Amino acid sequence: MPLRESSPRSVLLVAHGSQDPRAAACVRALARTVAAVRPGLDVRVAFLEQSPPSPAEVLRAMPAGTVVVPLLLTNAFHGSIDLPAQVAGFDCVITETLGAPTEPLLTALSKRLPGIDFDGLVLAAAGTRMASARDGIEDVAAALSARFNVPCRVAYAAGVPPTGAAAVTALRAEGCRRIAVASYFLAPGRLYDMVIHSALSAGAAAAAPPLGASWHMAQLILDRANARLLAPAA
C-alpha cells in the first residue's frame, strides 16, 4: 500500500478541555513550542469539551490531510470514541495518544520532578474506569521505577482508587520516607489539584507541575505525527 508523505504540514492538537483557564493557556503554549521546534508547521488547537473551539470548528479551516494529535495521556473514552466521532467526515488522520513509556515522555516526566532526593515515587493521574487505559499508566509507572530505582505507585484523582494519600501511605508501608509526586497531567486543572493535594496531605515531600509546554512534549507530538504519516494509507 502507498505511504503518506512523511512530514506533516498542518497539525491540530486536541486537548480534553477544562473550565480552568490555566489549562487552555498551557495547551496554547505547547502549540507554540511545537511550532518553534518545526518552523513552517501550521499548528492549531481545539478542545473536546468545556472550552472552545471544537475540533470540527478548527478543521473546517484546515487543509485536507491535517494530522490530528490527541493531547491525551490514555487511550480511554475521549481518545478511542469521542475524538474520532468529533472529526468524522473530515479528511484528516488521527495519531495515537501520547501516553506510552517512550523516551520523550519519560524524560519530560523526569525533568518536571522536584529537585529533591526521594526513595519513593507517586505517579499522579486523572483516573479512568477503562482497565486497558489504567494498564498503560501502570506501564509508565514501572518505567519510572526502573529509571530511578525506587518503587513507584499510581494515584488517581477520580473514578478509581487509589487516591494520592493512599499511594503515599502504601509507599510508607514499604519503607519509603521521602516521597516525590510525578505529574501525569498535561496541564493544570481541578483534577490535578485534587490528586496532588491528596498526596501532599499524606506526607509527600514535593510534587511536580504538569508536563506543560516542554521541548520533550513537543518532540513527542511530532514523533506521533510523523509515525502516523509513515503508516500505510488506508
Rank of each mutant, 00 (worst) to 15 (best):
S145M: 07
S145G: 14
S145Q: 14
A146L: 10
A146G: 14
R147Q: 11
N149H: 14
C152Q: 07
C152L: 03
V154C: 14
V154P: 00
A155G: 10
Y156T: 03
A157K: 07
A157W: 08
A158M: 04
A158E: 11
A158D: 08
G159N: 04
G159D: 09
V160C: 00
T163P: 00
G164S: 12
A166M: 12
A166F: 03
A166S: 14
A166R: 13
A166P: 00
A167P: 04
A167E: 00
V168I: 08
V168N: 04
T169A: 15
T169R: 14
A170S: 15
A170L: 02
A170D: 06
L171Q: 09
L171K: 03
A173M: 02
E174L: 15
E174N: 00
E174Q: 15
G175D: 05
G175W: 01
G175N: 07
G175V: 08
C176H: 05
R177P: 00
R178T: 11
I179C: 05
I179Q: 06
A180M: 07
V181Y: 09
V181N: 07
V181F: 06
A182N: 10
A182G: 09
S183I: 03
S183L: 03
Y184M: 01
F185E: 06
L186C: 06
L186F: 08
A187Y: 03
A187M: 10
P188S: 14
G189Q: 10
G189A: 05
R190E: 10
L191S: 06
L191Q: 14
L191I: 09
Y192C: 00
Y192F: 15
Y192N: 13
Y192H: 15
Y192I: 05
D193I: 07
M194A: 15
M194F: 13
M194Q: 14
V195M: 07
V195L: 13
V195W: 13
V195F: 09
I196S: 05
H197E: 15
H197Y: 01
S198L: 10
S198G: 12
L200A: 04
A202W: 11
A204G: 07
A206I: 11
A207L: 08
A207K: 12
P209G: 15
P209I: 06
P209A: 14
P209C: 05
P210C: 08
L211N: 11
L211Q: 08
G212W: 01
A213V: 12
A213Q: 03
A213D: 14
A213F: 02
S214V: 03
W215L: 13
H216N: 10
H216K: 10
H216W: 12
H216D: 15
M217S: 02
